[in-house]
């Protein structure tokens, strides 16, 4: 076990794990927000909203993430050169976040759309009937219920993104797999490094699972048992 408990290897692997976590922590919330916007557009009765959203979702879901990463990283810089601007020349880490968020937004859009459509139509009508606006009915009544439904598949995707982040290593981001490969190559201990990396991925995935359990518990109605008779009369 010297290869693992050697300071350099463990430090390097943990540094890679930190980048993996940062990539995921930055990309997933962005993916959910963009996904919610896409879901709303997709559900709109206006074609000028629903068609572009549908096109985006199908194109992104139909092409590999790795291809998207290469496309964004190399094309953006080229477009920037053509337009004579450095604004489109992004560092690898930022590009990684954009690619992961843009890719997963397409999947989250469909998950969120399913969650929104699963909420009983009567809930919106009941909300409107007490004078809430459409926006309030959506934000206060429908969306929280949809979120309760979609937490398990969202956590699923969070764990998937954690592992997919290793693809960002192709553009030079020093995340966990990249670090494991480097150390393994240096010391001819590739197999052992892969085992170590797998264990660290598993630990991070279990943390995501625990987050999911916490969210499911928090989103449950914080109801209590009924009051006893003396409490009713004493009130």
């Amino acid at each position: 076990m010297d290869f693992l408990f050697n300071d350099l290897a463990l430090t390097s692997l943990l540094s890679g794990a930190k980048n993996t976590l940062l990539l995921t922590a930055a990309s997933m919330p962005l993916a959910v927000v963009v996904g919610l916007l896409l879901a709303w557009m997709r559900m709109s009765r206006h074609r000028w909203l629903s068609w572009p959203a549908a096109a985006y979702i199908e194109v992104i879901r139909g092409t590999p993430l790795l291809v998207q990463v290469y496309l964004v990283y190399f094309s953006l810089a080229q477009v920037g050169q053509e337009l004579n601007t450095k604004l489109l020349t992004l560092d690898a880490f930022t590009t990684g976040i954009i690619c992961l968020a843009a890719n997963y937004a397409a999947y989250e859009a469909e998950i969120l759309r399913a969650g929104l459509e699963a909420v009983d139509k009567g809930q919106r009508e009941a909300a409107l009937s007490i004078g809430l606006s459409e926006r309030q009915a959506f934000g206060i009544i429908v969306l929280p219920q949809a979120f309760r439904i979609v937490v398990p598949p969202l956590i699923n995707d969070l764990i998937a993104m954690l592992k997919d982040s290793c693809l960002i290593s192709v553009i030079g981001v020093p995340e966990l797999l990249d670090r494991a490969k480097s150390i393994g190559k240096e010391r001819s201990t590739t197999a052992q490094m892969m085992v170590a990396a797998a264990v660290l991925y598993l630990i991070m995935s279990l943390a995501c699972y625990m987050l999911g359990k916490y969210l499911e518990k928090r989103l449950k109605v914080q109801g209590a048992h009924e009051l006893h008779v003396e409490q009713v009369h004493g009130h």
Partner: peptide, 27 residues
């Protein structure tokens, strides 16, 4: 013009009290 529905349509993510408070609070 208020309405009560056949299938109640109480908001399941809120307690009974929060259901009744919803209109007075937000409207």
């Amino acid at each position: 013009v208020g309405m009560v529905f056949q299938r109640f349509h109480l908001f399941p993510h809120l307690t009974v009290l929060q259901n009744v408070m919803c209109g007075p609070r937000h409207v």
